[in-house]
């Protein structure tokens, strides 16, 4: 008789265990469904389902993961303010240092993307100064490099990547671009000699036209003064020569800025499509 009861309880134990295993937790199902939508890049629906889970689930098991994935979904949809709001909630609900670090890095990446790079750098500084993250300096430097890239500060970007590894791929890339950029200041200084700034920025036609105008009006001005037609000289000198001379200075500066912008945009495009490492 005892053995029958024992067998019965053993069966009961196994049965309950099996039922418990088989019966799915609906909240876990909901999380998995939302996660699946996220993986399928259906970000709008993923956010809806994560929010549904967070609304109905009374515990805090899903607060970190769901808020993190909501934030990442918003980021993918370029809703950066909403992304930061949920990533901050994820950070507040994190249960260990690694989760804090992940959430904060994501906040930094969103700040980089929306070009609030000052805020990104401040957050990176706070991570670097926090003793809890001393082992993460490579990652911090890596994202600092990206923050500098998006602030158009290629020299500092290169230094940050070099701090990880002397010949880091991105350090070499930033260095080469930095060397390739025109110095706006030098373009302006060279333009003291009309056309020289334009030649420096490879705008040869513009340079020749600039020389032509300045020679013409310069000659007429000097000629007027030499023939004692002081009034004519003053008028031609101020209304024409000076106009073209100052235009030449502004022109050289404008070319340098425009060309630098073209180069940096081309570099960012290159990084977007052909760099396969981590990107913001």
């Amino acid at each position: 008789m005892i053995s029958v009861i024992k067998i019965f309880f053993a069966f009961l134990f196994i049965w309950i265990g099996t039922v418990t295993l088989v019966a799915q937790n609906p909240f876990e199902d909901q999380f998995n469904y939302a996660r699946q939508l996220y993986d399928e890049e259906k970000y709008f629906d993923a956010v809806t389902e994560f929010k549904r889970l967070l609304f109905f689930y009374e515990g805090d098991n899903y607060n970190y993961k769901s808020n993190l994935l909501i934030g990442l979904s918003y980021k993918e949809g370029a809703k950066f303010s909403e992304a930061i709001q949920h990533l901050t909630l994820a950070e507040l609900n994190s249960k260990n240092i690694d989760e804090v670090f992940i959430a904060r890095l994501e906040i930094i990446k969103v700040n980089i993307l929306r070009r609030t790079t000052g805020r990104a750098l401040t957050l990176l500084d706070s991570l670097q100064n926090d003793l809890k993250f001393t082992g993460k300096s490579d990652e911090i430097n890596y994202w600092r490099g990206w923050a500098y890239i998006f602030s158009d500060d290629w020299e500092n970007a290169s230094s940050s990547f070099s701090a990880i590894q002397a010949n880091h791929q991105l350090a070499v890339f930033c260095d080469s671009l930095d060397k390739d950029l025109y110095s706006v200041q030098l373009a302006k200084i060279l333009s003291i000699v009309p056309g020289a700034g334009q030649f420096y920025t490879d705008e040869y036609v513009s340079g020749i036209i600039s020389i032509g105008w300045n020679v013409l009006w310069g000659y007429l001005t000097i000629n007027a003064f030499m023939e004692d037609r002081v009034f004519d000289g003053l008028m031609v000198g101020t209304l024409l020569w000076w106009r073209f001379y100052s235009g030449n200075l502004q022109n050289a500066e404008k070319f340098a800025i425009e060309k630098n912008l073209e180069k940096t945009n081309a570099s960012l495009r290159y990084l977007q499509y052909y760099y396969f490492g981590n990107k913001p």
Partner: peptide, 23 residues
């Protein structure tokens, strides 16, 4: 009994009209 108890505790109608409205 356990089957009934488990089915009660593990089912939640996320998509019932009332819950959709609440959400």
């Amino acid at each position: 009994i356990p089957l009934f108890a488990l089915s009660q505790s593990t089912s939640f109608e996320f998509h019932s009209p009332e819950n959709i409205k609440k959400f």
